[in-house]
Design a protein around this nucleic acid. Sequence first.
DNA 1: CTTATTTTCGCAATCGGTTGCGTAAATATC
DNA 2: GATATTTACGCAACCGATTGCGAAAATAAG
Lengths: 347, 347
Amino acid sequence: MSADREVTIYDIAKYLNVSAATVSRGLKNNPMISKSTRRKIEDTAQLLGYQSNTFASSLRSRQTNTLGVLVPRLNSHFMSSAIAGMEDAANRHGYNLIIAQSLEDVEKEKRNAATMFNKRVDGLLISLSSNTQTIRHLEPFFKKKIPVVFFDRIHQHDESTAVGINNYEAAYNITKHLISQGCTKIMHLGGNVLRNVYQERLNGYQQALRDHHLPVKEKWHLTSHLSEQAGTDAARYILDLPVNKRPDAVFSANDTAAVYCMLALKDAGLRIPEDIAFAGFNNDPISRVIAPNLTTVEYPGESLGHTAATHLINHLKGISNLYNTNAITLRADLVIRDSSLKNKLQE
Amino acid sequence: MSADREVTIYDIAKYLNVSAATVSRGLKNNPMISKSTRRKIEDTAQLLGYQSNTFASSLRSRQTNTLGVLVPRLNSHFMSSAIAGMEDAANRHGYNLIIAQSLEDVEKEKRNAATMFNKRVDGLLISLSSNTQTIRHLEPFFKKKIPVVFFDRIHQHDESTAVGINNYEAAYNITKHLISQGCTKIMHLGGNVLRNVYQERLNGYQQALRDHHLPVKEKWHLTSHLSEQAGTDAARYILDLPVNKRPDAVFSANDTAAVYCMLALKDAGLRIPEDIAFAGFNNDPISRVIAPNLTTVEYPGESLGHTAATHLINHLKGISNLYNTNAITLRADLVIRDSSLKNKLQE
DNA sequence: CTTATTTTCGCAATCGGTTGCGTAAATATC
DNA sequence: GATATTTACGCAACCGATTGCGAAAATAAG
């Protein structure tokens, strides 16, 4: 009854006059142990209130059933959905998640990676911070053959899988859509091109312009953190242009910037989509609240997280081999809404 | 150079001709070890590429530097902000977070609690699932003196602290505000009253009505999951009422339901706030995007998470004692916006 | 009733740090 | 210069579960 002393397999062993080895095996349903003693062990464990000690187990067996998750920020709709998906997949297979955020700071990312390594996570799920240049800080993982899966913000690497969408294609298609609506002066609000997602969205946007013989102007490409403020600033930028030089459409690399740009332009009296059409990216909840509803790209956070985690776990369980899979690309459909439908009346 | 063999303190010890005990102490900056050998140990650790093994440490020292976080859902703005705050606080003090979600299911909450216990978290941060009745599944924590901090969805308990806001007061004040705008028929969209937050908001709403001699009608109190669908359903409910029986204001226990109710009512031609005023709860991003902007209560997720985690860590470090603190109440101010300002023109 | 197999289990080493206690060396005290 | 303190470190026993290998017990084969 003493509160501090832990109940161990030795207590169960003593109680049943068997060895700790037998108890250990019995608890793990090892077929080596007879059905009857296995039952007795389980019953006694229940009776004594035994709780397995994960450390002791991890120390010896060299596996933790824990996955590390390293993200730039936790509090965005996309990211929290992705993590929800991961948690669901992990939980389903008996894994736990250790989560840390880099807050877009490489140094913190490095420290967090080191911590995860020290905690001996069985695998790592990572989305890079905006200013990460190399992934040398992940070397310890590669060296020790700890599987790494990149998601969303990817880095090409031979020994890991990248889970995401075809950003190029999505951006290309949404730009094409704007062009099909009669827009010819399309501006792009982009993120740091150090990150593949923003680089690819920029590329898709530019290629669509070129393919439709529209000019690619540097003035129409604004780079920012895609924050609310960035959206508002972009609106200011547009309003400061001479009226005849203003874009007739904006494609933003996320919904937040798009929405706050729209809000400011609406305040200034511009009509959407008549004066200026809008398209975003992510299908964030705010895109369905803004008036008019924002055309965007469905970025399936939850299933992306679920897929990434499941892929990692399958590798750990030996069901599949991660090293053979270079990339997993999820479907990311266009969600056409009123913010870009200039031809609505005609149709 | 063999890839599998781990570098341990014994390797460092052998390299420097000292004992492993000295290395262990040196690595932890134990003053018992001289400055010079401490430096040598650190240098050698660096040289050999030593990475501490957390399990071995946890096994012996009986502490994991890990906090368990158990929430109903990860992917809401409030919750992901709270977790971001916790992560920040934890990281600052050398703690890690293990996160799991109950998906509003008690059984999953129980299983997750057991897992966290087995993982020997140093402390637990929990927000209850909507249908949790008792907290017997947390008994192992209390018995073993593992500190538990409730946040948001609280349960009163002698040996744990509850971190949240004064829901009663906030609801009272926001209802009072609606009354001050001339509203007399105020409807309430509430959540499951099993959870304190929804019970208290309901109480505050009702008391405000009574204090202003307004009737408290059961018909004007809808209980739901406060989802988007619930908001839309509430709108349907309102529209189905005879025009002269319709409420002239809605106070929703969250912003999501409020916003989707607004959208549906606007579609039906009702004017906000002229025909029907609106107030929500949480200050979710969508509340600043909907037109007109939604009056709401600022629920500071990030600082709430930060506070809860810091409080827990301070207890663990012996800086303060959690058992002395019954509750921590954060400020939750009203955010008055256009959705409720009927007197705007007059003012 | 032997001998060969299969089942079922125990022994003991191991995983990698941590820590109470003891002691030699270094420094201080008178 | 002898004794009292302080400093710096080593010894060895843990922490609690896992697992290769060997062996006893139970069952099958002849």
